[in-house]
Design a protein around this nucleic acid. Structure first.
Lengths: 184, 184
DNA sequence: ATCATACATGTCAATATTTACATGTTGATT
DNA sequence: AATCAACATGTAAATATTGACATGTATGAT
């Protein structure tokens, strides 16, 4: 499906970037729902260049340090736009290791289950707080055609997702605590 | 991390299963948060057998059709339980192609965005209805030590996750409709 | 008898992803 | 002058995953 291809093309529409800068993008806001490391990005850029979807200019910093600043071509924009317009089937599976653990949780004693759940809860809460702090940069909904609009809606989505996971964890803890009481 | 290894071991604790049956498991309830196809499962079973974590007996159906029914060994149970007890860092990224699209949605005209969102909404709603119907099999919270407890909590989680995605989609549609009005 | 569906097991090639290996520069601080 | 963090680009090996290729049996319905 070559999602990375389209992720890179989409980023390059915003502005020309080096591989290093692209890698950084995949480690900040974008990281909530897509990630790629530089070992994937550099080969993909080479491939996109071979396919004529991007071009690059070499920039020199200092005396000799070279950086390739990639730009999207007309053909690249065309293919990206076609991809973006496509309806898509929702994925059957959203992989989640912790849910897999909980699926098998009857093999754990209740106290351990609660410990694991609270550990996850704490981490998700921390993440949520970071996201909420980031969202303060958006006092209102950005203009529909600004590229901040996309940032904004996926950030909202990430916040809602975190809140939902925490709510689920709390319910799980509730079920287990109720189950312990029933026994006594 | 070999998650598939532990997923298989966990399933085999419930009851001995053939590769075919394991593949079916990964296509029903479990599919919401973990999937593997038979082309992954058969080699993994072979590997687990080599490692002494599972064994199998051959069953004959009809005249000659052979099936290998795998069981977990003591060592397998040990390794599975160790894995299950481990605290785990939450993943930095939960990959989601549709959110990636929405991140780039400023490149689409508002009507197309709403079309894409409503298409997703409809699919997620259908999924949600299926999950809710399944949840009717649980009139009350199963016993903590029954293996239905795990099924139950992850099913609850899947329902909450679907509801949350739909709520996010509705918010996105709301933002876009409000944005269109502002222009006129 | 034929047909369709479910049962049953495997391999292979291509793609995707992660982690480690590998190297070097620039600019700011101490 | 030394050190550190950030900039910058790549390759290699291992693992994970998907989709196609490949083959055949059992059972129930028509």
């Amino acid at each position: 499906m070559r999602v990375l291809k389209y992720a890179i093309l989409g980023l390059l529409i915003k502005r020309p970037m080096t591989g290093y800068e692209l890698a950084k993008e995949f480690n900040f806001e974008l990281a909530e729902f897509w990630h790629a490391s530089h070992s994937q990005i550099y080969p993909e850029l080479k491939k996109l260049n071979d396919e004529g979807l991007v071009t690059y200019d070499i920039e020199i910093s200092g005396d000799i340090l070279e950086a390739k600043r990639y730009s999207i071509t007309k053909q690249g924009e065309l293919e990206f736009t076609q991809w973006l317009h496509k309806d898509e089937k929702i994925p059957k599976t959203q992989k989640d290791i912790f849910r897999l653990r909980m699926y098998f949780s009857n093999n754990l004693d209740p106290k351990t289950r609660i410990h694991l759940l609270e550990n996850q809860r704490q981490q998700h809460l921390k993440r949520l707080n970071t996201l909420v702090k980031t969202s303060e940069q958006y006092p209102e909904v950005p203009d529909l055609y600004s590229d901040r609009f996309g940032d904004f809606v996926v950030l909202k989505g990430a916040i809602m997702r975190q809140e939902n996971i925490i709510a689920w964890i709390d319910q799980c803890i509730g079920y287990i605590e109720a189950g312990i009481k029933d026994k006594s």
